[in-house]
Structures are given as structure tokens and as C-alpha cells.
Design a binder for these strands. Structure first.
Length: 509
RNA sequence: GCCGUGUUGGUCAACCGGUUAAGACGCCUCCCUUUCACGGAGGAAUAACGGGUUCGAUUCCCGUACAUGGUACCA
């Protein structure tokens, strides 16, 4: 009764870790931490045909980036391993045989061709996809329709076969979902799902139940796409380990794209990531950009996913991981799927860039700069600059545009912004101003600004009219913090050099 | 087709029988700023449809529509 909470995330390593997947991990993690329990990751690598090399490592890299470290996993260890299904193979067969012995499952010898034939023969416009269920199983080739000797013969001959669950007729199967409440199904309408495949590997249905039992899982969260197969799992628990030991289920709502189901195609189509990190499909070589590479902060990524389908009713929107752990409750998770809105996602990232001290992400910016050919030598200067421009950055790559001119003179000047109002008088002012600047001994904000204003008054030009040209000279465009602050930071030599260089190009035509 | 799940502004959403139906993103206007942002003040914009139940329904029930998931020896 007082069993410790044990929640598992069980990805199948077949592709990138998408938004819905990360949110499932997050809720698992939050729930486990909230109750002082264990957060477990196991890998569902039962399907050899779709298993993708490198995908397991990819999943853990993503978790690492998000900061969701499991208590138990193939790479972290634990007391209820192994944590990969492929390493538990013999056990599944035992469970399946047990079910047959108890009359809850049967051998099926139908070939793929025979299955196709059945589906084709029975297909009507009314029923486009006939199931292998109680209505047809006696017409098929299995241990229910065949005699004991026939079955034994087939088995002895080593004929390929699967093991199917024998769904009961006329029972109502129901269970209490943590999100949806009571959900029920008519057993007669559910088909005889394959439990053990011809190659001896279990299907997901047998595997989850067996593994959850083995690992003493108390709460199992998964996407809503699994809800329809829940009756199979409930029955398996009933037959194998007892309903009273079944974990609490929670079927999380789906995350939708702009046009329904979120697919990796949406990323390319609408220009936003759908995976946590870059994912290269080994089959096609196609690269899908991730949130990390797009320039998202993990804190923002987690935050935006957490509140997509959950809120605590307080109106708060910005949560740190710690806050999420203390505020999170399953009863406030939504039932309905939510459409992902990239604009709002960007807003979350912007908020986190403003909120977090620059130390948290300065290394990312540093490597961004490095890739653009700017090396950072003075860390204090670097931090000051980042602090100054962070309000203007929504995503990490924005720092390049917003801060590069602090390190290197702008390549291009927005001359169009000054030329229409440019005059000899202004030109003279700046030539003069350079001389004034040369003479400044203590290069600080007041002396730069005061001398600018004094000279402008002397020349009878409004200082305001000179500030934009000055900005274009130093920055290259109409953006950035206060001009004199920029001049202060980039220093005397650079300031004068940029003014002189700009005067030439203003003159140019 | 059948089964499951869902349906409050463009999007995320609060409310859990009586409200002028919060808030956020986005959009628009203004202020701040002779740059761009940040910040501040406003604005436009919402309960799918039809029946019930009730003194009273956005809230409860039933239909319909729509959306979404499943319907594989995939997960």
C-alpha cells in the first residue's frame, strides 16, 4: 500500500524525441519528484525491424540537455533491470505460454497471406478493416479451431506461429485513468491482439505489462494514442499479475500541429522544430532541426511544454523546474489536445533569456560567436555586453546580430537611414567631434555624452539629429542600446575609427 | 465503417449552476525612448449546434456536427 512511487518513461528508439515525447517525460519526472519517487527510463527496443542505431544515445542526450536525469535507466543502473526489453526476451515467452495454459491466449498459425485473404474477403464499405476477433477466429488456423493433435503436430514441425490474446465476449472492461476518469470498452469489439510474434519477440502489449510488473511500476504515463489498446493491457494485468497490482494509467493529451497531428513535416513546413534536438533520419539522411539547435534554453523548453496542457489555475506562466515540481498535479492536466504555437514558444524563450543570469547561457553565445569568426578574450566585457542586449534577444542566435558590433566594426552601414538628411554641417560636426574625443582622458559615459552635446550646441545642431547618424556609425543599423553607452564600451580608438570610416562612406555618393 | 477520446477568442487557457466569461501569446492604438527592444496604459476578438434537467445553464444529461487517436506479427 505504501509502495514508493515509481514512474517510467518508455520510449522506443525509432526516431527523434518529439514535443509530445518530451512532455511525457516531463510529467513523469515531475510526478515522480513531487512524490519523492523514482523516475525510470527503459527502452522499448522489441521491434528489431524498426530499431534505429544511435537512437538510444540520442534519447539520453535529449534528457541530459533538458536536465531530466533518470534514477534508473540502461545507462544509470538500478535494481530492477535490465532496462532494455531486448535483454528480457525469454521471460515474455513464459508469460505468453502461461496465458495459453489458463485459456486466455492461443497459438495462431495463419500466414501473412492467409491474414490478408481474410481481411480482403471480409472487407466491405461498411467495414473497411476487419479484425481478427471472436467472430472470425474459429475460421482461422489456430489452437482454438484446430484439434489438439493438429496443434501439437504443427508445433512439433516448427511451423511459424504467434500467440494471440483470446478476448472474452460480452464483458465490459473499464479502468480509472488519472486524466480521463473512468474509461470503458466492450470486450467483444476488441480484436485478438498478437502478444508474441513469430520471431519470439513480444509486441508492445505483452512487453509493457510484463516490464511494468517486473520493475514494480506504480504509475504509467503515455500518449493518448495508447488509450484504445488499454483494454488489452488491463486484461493482461488481470490474467497475469492481478488487477490490484496494475499501475495507475494516465493517457496524456496529444500535442497538435497547425493542421492536426504534429508531424516532423510540420517543422519544415512551418519553420519550427518538433524535436528536442537535431535528429538525422538514418534511412533518408534527412536532418530535422531541434529546439536546442534552434537556440532554445532548456528551462524555456520545459516551461512551455509543461503549460501546454496543464496549469495550476493561478495564472502563473513562468515556472522553473523546481517550481513545476512543487506546483504540478495530475488532476489539472487537460483532457483535450493542444495546438502548439511557435509564437508563444518564442515568447517563453525570450522571458527566460531575460530572467536568467547570462552565465547560464554565455557559453552557447560564445560558441555561436566563434562559429561566426569572433573570439571572446575578455569575459567580463563579454558578460557586460550580453547583459546589455539580452532584452533584445528572443533566441540564442539573435545575440550575434545584437552584439557582434561590440567586437567588430559593422560590415555594412545603413546609410539610407542618414543620407537623406545628411549635410556639410553634420559632417563638420563629426570631424570636430573626433578631435574632441581624442582629447578625452577619462573615457567614460559622462565625458563622451557631455562633449557631444556641448559641441552640438556650439554648432547649433540639435543633438537629437546627430544621434541617429552616430548610431549608424557605431552599430551599422537602427538598433541597440544607448549610443553613448556603446561608445563607452567599444573604447576610444574604435569609436573614432568607426566615425571616420563612416564619414567616408557617407560622403561616397 | 466501427471503437475510444475530446470541443470556451486566431492560439494556450481560468471558471467546476447565478461572473460585465480572468489571464497569456499574437494583432492594433497610445505613453516611455530623437534607434531597436524592454517596460507601462488601452483596444478588437470567445462558450460548435439542437434538445432536455433546473427558478437559472458556458458549467449537468442526451443527441448531432466537427476534430483527433486506434482499428498491423509498429510502437
Amino acid at each position: 500500500m505504501n509502495q514508493k512511487v515509481r514512474v517510467r518513461f518508455a520510449p522506443s528508439p525509432t526516431g527523434g524525441l518529439h514535443l509530445g515525447g518530451v512532455r511525457t517525460v516531463l510529467y513523469n519526472y515531475l510526478f515522480a519528484k513531487k512524490h519523492g519517487g523514482d523516475f525510470i527510463v527503459r527502452i522499448e527496443d522489441t521491434d528489431q525491424t524498426r530499431f534505429v542505431a544511435g537512437a538510444e544515445k540520442y534519447i539520453f542526450d535529449c534528457l541530459d540537455w533538458c536536465g531530466l536525469v533518470p534514477d534508473e535507466s540502461p545507462i544509470h543502473g538500478g535494481n530492477f533491470g535490465p532496462y532494455r526489453q531486448s535483454e528480457r526476451k525469454p521471460q515474455y515467452r513464459r508469460f505468453a505460454e502461461q496465458l495459453i495454459k489458463d485459456g486466455h491466449a492461443y497459438y495462431a498459425f495463419d500466414t501473412p497471406e492467409e491474414l490478408d485473404k481474410m481481411r480482403n474477403d471480409l472487407k466491405t464499405s461498411e467495414n473497411p478493416s476487419p479484425q481478427y476477433d471472436h467472430t472470425v477466429r474459429m475460421q482461422m488456423k489456430n489452437s482454438l479451431s484446430l484439434s489438439g493433435e493438429e496443434v501439437k503436430q504443427l508445433l512439433d514441425d516448427g511451423v511459424r506461429h504467434v500467440i494471440r490474446i483470446k478476448m472474452p465476449v460480452g464483458e465490459t472492461i473499464s479502468f480509472n485513468d488519472m486524466i480521463h476518469g473512468e474509461v470503458s470498452f466492450e470486450s467483444s469489439l476488441v480484436d485478438d491482439k498478437v502478444l508474441l510474434k513469430a520471431d519470439g519477440m513480444p509486441t508492445y502489449h505483452l512487453a509493457v505489462v510484463a516490464d511494468d510488473h517486473n520493475m514494480k511500476i506504480t504509475h504509467a504515463f503515455r500518449g493518448e494514442e495508447w488509450l484504445s489498446s488499454a483494454p488489452v493491457h488491463v486484461l493482461l494485468w488481470k490474467y497475469l499479475f492481478g488487477l490490484e497490482n496494475m499501475p495507475q494509467w494516465a493517457h496524456l493529451p496529444l500535442i497538435l500541429g497547425p493542421n492536426g497531428k504534429l508531424s516532423k513535416r510540420d517543422g519544415a513546413k512551418y519553420g519550427f522544430p518538433v524535436f528536442a534536438m537535431n535528429w538525422t533520419d538514418p534511412a533518408t539522411g534527412e536532418l530535422v532541426e531541434g529546439f536546442k539547435e534552434k537556440g532554445f534554453l532548456p528551462a524555456a523548453f520545459l516551461n512551455l511544454l509543461a503549460v501546454l496542457g496543464w496549469n495550476d489555475g493561478s495564472g502563473q506562466e513562468i515556472y522553473s523546474l523546481e517550481e513545476l515540481i512543487s506546483h504540478f498535479t495530475m488532476d489539472r492536466v487537460h483532457k483535450a489536445g493542444a495546438k502548439f504555437d511557435f509564437e508563444k514558444a518564442k515568447w517563453f524563450n525570450h522571458e527566460w533569456i531575460k530572467k536568467l543570469p547570462v552565465e547560464e547561457y554565455m557559453n552557447q553565445v560564445k560558441s555561436l560567436f566563434l562559429s561566426k569568426g569572433i573570439s571572446v578574450n575578455d569575459e567580463t566585457y563579454f558578460k557586460t555586453v550580453l547583459e546589455l542586449v539580452k532584452d533584445r534577444c528572443t533566441m540564442i542566435p539573435d545575440f550575434y546580430e545584437q552584439a557582434a558590433y561590440f567586437f567588430t566594426a559593422p560590415m555594412q552601414l545603413d546609410t539610407a537611414a542618414v543620407k537623406p538628411k545628411w549635410s556639410e554641417a553634420k559632417n563638420a560636426f563629426f570631424e570636430n567631434y573626433c578631435t574632441v574625443l581624442e582629447g578625452i582622458e577619462h573615457w567614460d559615459l559622462p565625458s563622451i555624452e557631455e562633449s557631444f552635446k556641448t559641441l552640438a550646441t556650439e554648432k547649433n545642431i540639435k543633438p537629437g539629429e546627430l544621434q541617429l547618424p552616430m548610431r549608424i556609425m557605431l552599430v551599422g543599423g537602427k538598433f541597440g542600446p544607448a549610443v553613448f553607452e556603446i561608445a563607452t564600451l567599444i573604447g576610444k580608438i574604435d569609436t573614432i575609427a568607426r566615425i571616420k570610416k563612416a564619414l567616408i562612406s557617407f560622403q561616397a555618393d
